[in-house]
Design a protein around this nucleic acid. Structure first.
Lengths: 256, 256
DNA sequence: ATCGCTGTGTTCAATACTGGACAGACAGGA
DNA sequence: TCCTGTCTGTCCAGTATTGAACACAGCGAT
């Protein structure tokens, strides 16, 4: 169940079309034909800032395949906490809004790869002309909203260990790799917790045989065990994605 | 600074127009004329569920004046944690999305009062015809997004005491009343924390002279002191509101 | 081979927070 | 008026989490 969802649907797509991004793949052929000319394919490596809090957002990015973007909110004391993780199931940058607005959070590539980039000017224009396109994006915006709602509640209610496990699973799901390339400290900052406690949790998981560690690297051995540690917040969100984006997959744009 | 923003702008509005809701007030006269016929004015009392998680949302609601809506996410164990608070500065229900989609969270009136209600079918139709209207709502959606981003990070990073103070200030700001009618337990659930700890925090504030308590009632005496306890998360969000909705106030629909 | 840096394992004391418990206070209905 | 149920203040024992500290390991650069 956990490993299923997005990868499978991608494989099952009738026409593998161009993109390894679910939103683009879900567009009706007519809508995709409209969008395609303004899509720019880019390879972006890990750790690149797509936009900074306060920047006027100029582009939207569609992560393809194993690419992954992390939204982070910064605090006055310098802490930079992750609020959302977006992979091939979504898009970042001016998706919910139109017009070119300042970003509230920073967007960083958490896993490099292929992205489709589109200028928001072009995207807005197309959205105002193609209802199917607009419809898909607003539906996705609703899903992203749900994702953050759940994250808010989760951060209020669940233990750090559960959230840590949840984060690792979400990352593994999207990157399709059980190796996470980050230090304990980076993980701790993401989660908004102390470094030593993050280490302790990892060590605990290690001695439970869930994963093993090396410098700057966490390798998960037993995803099932990790799932039993994690809260199920992500699966609730996933259900919402399935419901709200359902019927769009085959040939998109079922309206209302 | 804390008490400023929304109340002031309302008072400063050139034409006090009909509604005590900032979004409606910010609409260009033409757009408002379009919307007005389908707006239904309702009085709704405190504690009413506007929609339940999973319900297909049929209406959007615009809280007026001191009315206040709380979005809450429920967990399997029955806990019901607040993720967002929406007053006269915004709207709830199908604002970000279009089409009639299932709600992800529950929406409850936290403070009763006057609301304008509009059927989403009507609203979607108008949005597709009036760009100014669509533009305003998507800008608001961007703000709501920012609000939840910050809440997510806040819940990960700030103490319960700080969040509690923040919540009380946010509520006071919008209801314009220093009396909060809720029990310690209700407050604890909202925040996603234990009841006894919520009580302890309140008692602490009481003995610091910040507020006094009676059965089911919290009366804040010293907002300034409360501000020094609270994190400043809300003010960051407020700035984003000001930026993103700026230029809309006088006569709306400044596009791109 | 060595240096120096960053990351790791581990410790410690202190604070934050939980959840259960219970007696007394209060308010509203009968 | 009493009764009843909810709300509150308080305590406690236990767990979660912080933040600082330090020795050491791994590794890339010289």
């Amino acid at each position: 169940m956990r490993t299923s969802a997005m990868p499978e649907t991608a494989k099952a797509l009738p026409k593998p079309a161009r993109p390894g991004n679910n939103l683009l793949a879900a567009l009706a052929s007519d809508d995709f034909r409209l969008l395609a000319p303004v899509l720019e394919e880019k390879r972006i490596s890990t750790g690149v800032t797509l936009f900074e809090a306060g920047d006027i957002i100029e582009n939207a990015y569609f992560p393809c395949d194993k690419a992954l973007v992390s939204y982070r909110v910064s605090f006055a004391d310098g802490r930079l906490v992750e609020v959302a993780l977006v992979g091939r199931e979504g898009a970042v940058g001016g998706i919910v809004s139109n017009g070119r607005l300042p970003a509230f959070s920073r967007a960083i590539t958490q896993n490099g790869g292929t992205f489709f980039r589109v200028g928001l000017r072009d995207l807005d224009l197309l959205k105002s002309r193609a209802p199917g396109l607009r419809n898909l994006f607003t539906r996705y915006a609703d899903c992203l909203m749900a994702q953050i709602y759940q994250a808010t509640a989760c951060n209020a209610a669940h233990s750090i260990e559960a959230r840590c496990a949840k984060w690792m699973l979400a990352t593994i799901d999207r990157t399709e790799s059980k190796t996470l390339a980050l230090t304990h400290e980076q993980l701790a900052i993401l989660l908004g917790v102390g470094r030593s406690y993050a280490s302790r949790i990892l060590l605990g998981m290690k001695s439970a045989g869930v994963l093993h560690l090396s410098r700057g690297r966490i390798v998960v051995d037993d995803c099932a065990a990790l799932e039993s540690i994690a809260c199920n917040c992500d699966s609730l969100v996933r259900e919402h994605f399935d419901t709200v984006l359902a019927g769009i997959y085959p040939d998109g744009s079922k309206h209302d």
